[in-house]
Design a protein around this nucleic acid. Structure first.
Lengths: 220, 220, 220, 220
DNA sequence: TATGAATGAGGCTTCATTCAT
DNA sequence: AATGAATGAAGCCTCATTCAT
C-alpha cells in the first residue's frame, strides 16, 4: 500500500477512534500526517470518506490477527478454549478497533453496511467456531441445542464489552484495581463461561429457557 | 422537578443519545424545547454541563426501573434467572441509556466519575446479586469460586452488548431476521449462560482457567 | 425595514450585480457591511439565500420607480411614447438591476421563479401597456394584429440590451463615442421604432411575416 | 486546427457558457476533455487564457455562419427581411455564444477588447447591412434619417434579448407556452418591426424623437 | 508532450456562547 | 426568568495552479 495512504489511515484510525466521527478534526488528522489537509480530500473526498476508509482499515487490521491457529489439531474443548482466548485477546489488544466499532454503532452502522470485506471476514470467523462446535457435538461433549451464533455472540459480547465499557465499568466497580490482573481474571472467566455454556454435563437446557421466555423466568 | 428542567432534560437525553456529545447541537436541543437557548445556559452553564445532567438523568431513569422484585422469596437459581432476565430487559428497553453510556465510554468516562448517585445505584444492584449468589452458595447449588462481580460483568456485558452493538452485529449476521425473535432467543441464551456459569454440577472450574492464563489454553 | 437588513441588502445587491452569484464573495459583502459575516448567515441562511433576497430587493427597487405617470390622460400615441421612454430610462438608471437579471438568466432563472412578487410587478407593467394599446386600437391609430406582449418584449428587449450589452457593443462599434449622446440617440430610436411598429399607416403587416416564417423571408 | 486544441475549446466553450468565468471549473473542463488538466495550462497558460480563447472561438463559430447569402440580388426590402431573419436565427441557434457574450458583458468586456478578429467580423456584418440600407435609401423605399448602426442595434438587441433573457422572460410571462411557436412569432415580429422602422411611408420621424429627447416625450 | 500527485490560499458554513433588552 | 440578535473562532471543503516524473 502507498505509504502516504498508509500513514494517513494510521493517523485517521487513531483520531476517529479517539473522538468519533463528529468529534474528530480533519485539521488534527492532517497535522499529524506527513501530508497536507488538501491531500486528505484528494485521496478520500471528504471527512466521511476518510472515516469509512479508516473503519475498513481497522477491520482489515483485525483480519490479519484472525489468521488463526490450527484448531483442528486440538480436541474440541481445548480448541474452543483457545478460540475464545484468541478472540478475547484480539479485542484486548485492539482498543482502537473496539472504539471505532462502538462509534459506528452509535452512527447506526451506516458505514459498515457498504463494506463487503468486513462481512466476509466476520463470517469466516464464525465458520471456524462452527467447525469446532460441530466436532464437539459429534463426540458428545457439546450440547446439540445451541447455534454457533449463540456462542459467537456470547464470546464477542463479553470480549467486546470488557474493552468498550472499561471506562465506566471500572470507574464504578474497580477504582484503583490492577488493570493487568483484572484483565487476566476476566479472560479466565469468559473462557470458563463459554466452556460451561456448551458442555453436555450441566443442568438447565436452552429449551427450558425458551419456554420460560413466554411464561415465567423459572427453570427447574 | 421543575417542568421546564424536566422538558430540557428529556430533549437533551434524546439528542445526546442520538448524536453523542460532539455530534449533539445545542441549537437542536433548544429548538425542540419549550424554552430558549439562553435558558439552557442559564440552568446548565454549558453544553458539557447539560450533557452531564442528561447522563445523570438517564441513569436515574434506569434506577427507578431497578426497584427490584423480591428475589429473596425465590430459591437461588430461580432468583438468579429472574435477576438476569430483569437486567436484560432493562437494557433492551433503554436504548437511549445504552447509547449514552457508550458515548460516555468513548469519552473516557470523564463525566460519570463525578456522579456519585450513579455509583451508589450500581453498587446497590451488585449487592442484590451478591445476596442471591450467597444464598446459592450456602445451599450448595452455586459454585464458591466466583465473585459476584464476575457474574455481574457477564450479565451486564451480554445484555449491554446485545443492545449497543445491534447495528453492526445484525448488519453482519442477521440481515433480515425478525427482531423480536432474535431478542427473545438472545434473552434465553443469556439466562442459560449465566445459569450454567454458576451451578456446581459442571465440568471445568475457574481455578484451572486461571492457571491456564499463565500457561496454555487447555483445561482438562 | 430593519436598517441592518437594509444595509446588508444594499451591499449584497452591489456585489452580486458586480460579480454574479459565483463570483461574489461573502467575505467581501460582510466587509462592506456594518455587521459581521456571521450575521449574513443568521439572517439569510446561505450565500444563495442572500442572493435570492438581493435579487428580490432589486426588483422591488424597480417597482417603486414603476409607480407610473398618468398615461390615461394622454392620447394613445403620446402615452405609448411616454411609456417607452419611461421603461428605457428605468433600465438606463438601474444598471445593477440589469446586471442581476442577466446573471439570473445565466443561472437559468432558478431563483426568480420562486419570487411571486416579481411576477405580479411585471404583469402590472404589461397591463398598463395593454390599456394604452387598446385605446389606440379602438381609435384606429394602432394596428389590431399585435399582442401587447409583442410590443412589451420589443420595448424591454431594446431597453435591456442597450444597458446589458453596452460593454461589448460599444467596445466593438462605438469606441470613444460620447456616452450621453449615444444614450440619447438610442432612446429616440427605440421610441421611434415602437411608434412605427404599432401605427396603422405603415406598409408590411404581421400576417405576412408569419406566413413568411413558414416559407421564404420575403414580404411584399 | 490541432484536434487536441479543438477538443479542449469545445469543452471550454460549453463550460464557460454554462457557468461563466467565475463559475466554471478547470477540473470540470479537464475531466470532459481527452487530455489532462496539465495540458490546459500548457496550451492556454491560465483559466483566463482559456476563457479568452473559448470566447474568440465562439465568435469564430458564428463568423462561419455569417458567410452570408447574396443579399445584393434581392430588392432592398426583401434583402433587409432576409438579413434580419438570418441574424435572428443565428442567435437562436447559438445559445452558447449568447451566454458567453452575456458573461463577457458582466465582466465589463475585459476580454473582448483584445480580440481584433471579433471586431473585424462584427464590422463586416454591419457593412453588409449598410449596403442594403443604402440601396433602399437610393430607391426611396427607406428613410434617410437613420444610421445603419441604429438599425443594427435594433436587430441585434431584439435577437439577442430573446435568447439571453428567455429564462426570466418566459418564467414571468410565458409559463407553459410552446417554445417553438413563441420563437416563430417572435421572429416574425422582429422582422416586421425592423421593416416598419425603416420604410419611408410611416408617420413619426426620428428628428421629432430627438427633439423630444430634450423636451417632452410627445411627438405629433 | 503528457500525467497523477501535490499545494496554499481562500471559499462557505457552523459552532458554542454571550449581550442588550 | 426570558428573548432574539450578535459574535469570533474554527470547521469542512474547493480552487487554480505547479511539481516530479
Amino acid at each position: 500500500m502507498d505509504p502516504v495512504i498508509r500513514n494517513i489511515l494510521d493517523v485517521a484510525v487513531a483520531e476517529f477512534a479517539e473522538h468519533g466521527l463528529a468529534g474528530a478534526r480533519v485539521d488534527a488528522i492532517a497535522a499529524r500526517t506527513r501530508t497536507s489537509k488538501r491531500m486528505l480530500y484528494y485521496h478520500f473526498g471528504s471527512k466521511e470518506g476518510l472515516y469509512a476508509a479508516a473503519l475498513a482499515d481497522a477491520y482489515a487490521g483485525v483480519r490479519t490477527a484472525l489468521e488463526q491457529p490450527d484448531y483442528e489439531s486440538l480436541p474440541p474443548a481445548a480448541a474452543l478454549g483457545a478460540y475464545v482466548g484468541h478472540l478475547f485477546d484480539l479485542h484486548l489488544k485492539s482498543p482502537q478497533f473496539v472504539r471505532l466499532v462502538m462509534g459506528e454503532n452509535l452512527l447506526g452502522g451506516r458505514f459498515i453496511e457498504s463494506a463487503e470485506s468486513v462481512r466476509q471476514m466476520s463470517h469466516r470467523s464464525l465458520e471456524t467456531l462452527a467447525r469446532i462446535v460441530q466436532r464437539g457435538q459429534r463426540s458428545g461433549e457439546f450440547r446439540g441445542d445451541l447455534e454457533p451464533l449463540d456462542i459467537y455472540a456470547n464470546i464477542v459480547g463479553l470480549s467486546f464489552h470488557f474493552v468498550s465499557n472499561r471506562q465506566t465499568f471500572s470507574a464504578l466497580f474497580e477504582a484503583g484495581a490492577d488493570v493487568r490482573l483484572v484483565a487476566e481474571r476476566r479472560r479466565a472467566v469468559v473462557i470458563d463461561t463459554i466452556d460451561r455454556q456448551i458442555r453436555t454435563d450441566t443442568a438447565a437446557g436452552l429449551a427450558c429457557r425458551l419456554d420460560a421466555a413466554r411464561g415465567s423466568d423459572r427453570c427447574p
